[in-house]
Design a protein around this nucleic acid. Structure first.
Lengths: 193, 193
DNA sequence: TCCAGATATTAATCTAATTCAACCTATTTT
DNA sequence: AAAATAGGTTGAATTAGATTAATATCTGGA
């Protein structure tokens, strides 16, 4: 169980004493997944908030017509979960699936509440993390409205170059909210410019 | 200064002692705005996180082409700010403007940090609030991808009936990411059905 | 009461993006 | 080596929604 990446990540935002690190490491699970495995499935309750130690995941929603919409990707030092489901312990709207062999540090709902009690500083940590996620999500809403598909693709490439290299193109298209064919055309056009 | 609505709102999530309420009320400002006034302007630093006691506001972004995109509306018992700007105390991407005479309870960045120190429970409160906001924002991203403009309008009407009655139709269109003309067409179509 | 500005509708034309269908690689599987 | 599978490209037809422009309606002052 390699908890170090998580500790380093947390230390960017708050200090942790060795004692607190011990409490933390006693309240999380370390788990490995194979490529293709589901960490959360739409309709199930999301049991864990997951910190990615290694690997790559996609969070996606399947709509009434059976179409897949990717909400986000997660790689090393990111988080993956259906947070809405996790918070309220109600059925998930999203699936979280491994695109590579993946290792996660998992916080169960109950243990996270315990953790808040024993290390209240972590309440602050998670507030800060979620604030950042929220701000990013709002920016995405605006970008989707004010930019063309091509501009959105360029912004994605700029912002997440590491992800573009790790996931197939049709998933990038799904993340951008366009068809794979149209992304292919955009790319062809960019090359010929 | 009418702090009661805020206290009642907070008490939905955490308990507050009379002492804590006192500390709180000592660290917030109460301010009235006229219709049309700006609470935050794009480019300025967002000084306050604002709780709406009375009134109605819009948060919007003006893009390079000068087009206005409404990110959210806020009415009684909601929050209004450019949270990204507030958190990092950097220039705002959004404007927050009053659509009616409005009364706000304002948390300055510095006072909020003090408040966290004196009443650590509030760290928990704001974490919960922001979690909810984040989940709502993600849902909006998905809805924008998987629903047609008509479906999005119907969802908006369902979810925020009070807001639809209070703001002009062209602002609803902006919130939905469509033109006012197209919204008008959708409405005509819905009536004739 | 009437005017001016703000808001809403309608219709014609235009365009970004989708759909569908065929085809083209690579890479695994048998 | 053949066949199956996953990923990517290309082109023609279609559509959701934008743009433009003209007209209509509503509203709150002087």
């Amino acid at each position: 169980m390699n908890i170090e990446p998580l500790v380093n990540y947390i230390k960017q935002y708050i200090d942790l004493t060795p004692d607190e690190i011990n409490i933390l490491s006693g309240l999380v699970k370390y788990r490995k997944y194979l490529k293709g495995q589901f960490v959360v499935q739409q309709g199930d309750i999301c049991r864990y908030e997951n910190f990615v130690v290694k690997g790559c995941l996609k969070t996606f929603h399947v709509d009434q017509e059976g179409q897949q919409h990717i909400v986000m990707f997660a790689i090393e030092n990111w988080w993956a979960a259906d947070l809405g489901s996790f918070i309220t312990q109600s059925p998930a709207d999203y699936n979280v699936q491994c695109l590579e062999p993946t290792e996660l540090i998992q916080f169960s709902h109950r243990n996270l509440e315990q953790l808040y009690r024993h290390v209240p500083k972590l309440e602050r940590f998670f507030r800060i993390i979620i604030q950042k996620a929220y701000v990013a999500s709002e920016k995405r809403v605006i970008r989707n409205f004010s930019l063309t598909a091509k501009e959105r693709y360029l912004a994605f490439r700029e912002q997440y170059p590491k992800i573009e290299q790790r996931v197939p193109q049709y998933m990038v298209a799904s993340y951008l909210g366009i068809t794979k064919e149209f992304l292919s055309k955009i790319r062809a056009q960019l090359i010929s410019e």
